[in-house]
Design a protein around this nucleic acid. Sequence first.
DNA 1: CGGAGCCCCTGTAAGC
DNA 2: TGCTTACAGGGGCTCC
Length: 262
Amino acid sequence: MPELPEVETVVRSVAPHLVGRRIVSASFTSRFVTPGSRARLAGRLVGRRIESVRRRGKFIIMALDQGTLTVHLGMTGKLLLASERDQHTHGVFTLEDGMLYYHDPRQFGRIEWSAGSPPRVARLGPEPLEISFEDFRARLRRKTRMKSLLLNQTFLAGVGNIYADESLFAAGIHPLAMAQRLTRGRAEKLHQAIRGILAHAIELGGSSISDYVNAQGERGWFQMEHRVYGREGEPCANCGTPIRKILVAQRGTHFCPRCQKK
DNA sequence: CGGAGCCCCTGTAAGC
DNA sequence: TGCTTACAGGGGCTCC
C-alpha cells in the first residue's frame, strides 16, 4: 500500500511530466474516488496549468493556476503516465503534452479539488523526515500504544502499516508499548529508525508488496528489506525467534516477541 | 482523549 | 473443481 516512500516515489516520477503543463480535459468514473459531482470536478480542471507537484504525508498535492488538486492513493491507487484503460481506470487527464491516468481497483483513494489549501492536509502532523528529536519526543506524551500512534496521521504524516512495523522492529520497541512511557534513549532510537527506514525506502523506490508501481510502471525494492512485515512465522533476522502477527488498531501488526520490548 | 468496531471497495487466498 | 467466506487495509465515522 502506498505510504510516504511510495508516494514520494510517485511524485518524483510524475512531476517532470506534469509541472508547467496545462490540463486539456479530465474525466472521472468513480463516485467513491471522486465524491460529489464528477462533471463539476472535471470542469474545475479544464484549462488549468499545473504549477507544482509535491508530497505531504501520503497526499499528492498539485498546485494549479486556480485551486489545488489533491490525490490520495488509498491502498491500491496508482498514477500512471501511460496505461491501458480498464474497469479500474477512474481518472483520465489529457494534458497538452501527454496523459495521466488514475487507476484504483479498491477505490479507497480520493481525488479532490479545493479552492485554497486542502482541508485534509491541514490536519496532518509533521513530516517524519523533517521533525526534530525534541519535537518528536514531545509528541510521544500520549496515552496510547506505539503502533496506534505511528498510524495516526496527526502524530506524524505518512507512516503507514509497513513502515510502522519496520520502524518499531528496528528500534526494538514492542507495538503495544505505551507511548508516554518510552525512555529518552528508546525515543531517540525510534526517531532514528523512522528516518533511516523511510529514507532508505525512498532510495529503493518504495515497497512493492502487491502491485505498487511508480508513474512509469516500475516496481520498488524495499520489500526485500522488510524484517517483520509479511514475515509471520519466519525467523527473526536478529535472534531467530518466529515473527508474530497480532491485531492492533484493526491492523495486522508484525513483530519479534524477543527483540521488541514493552 | 483513546480505542473498539464498522464501513467504504474488490482481488486474492483459504476453506469446505 | 467450484463455490463461499475471510482477509488485506487508509481513513473517517460512531459509540462508549
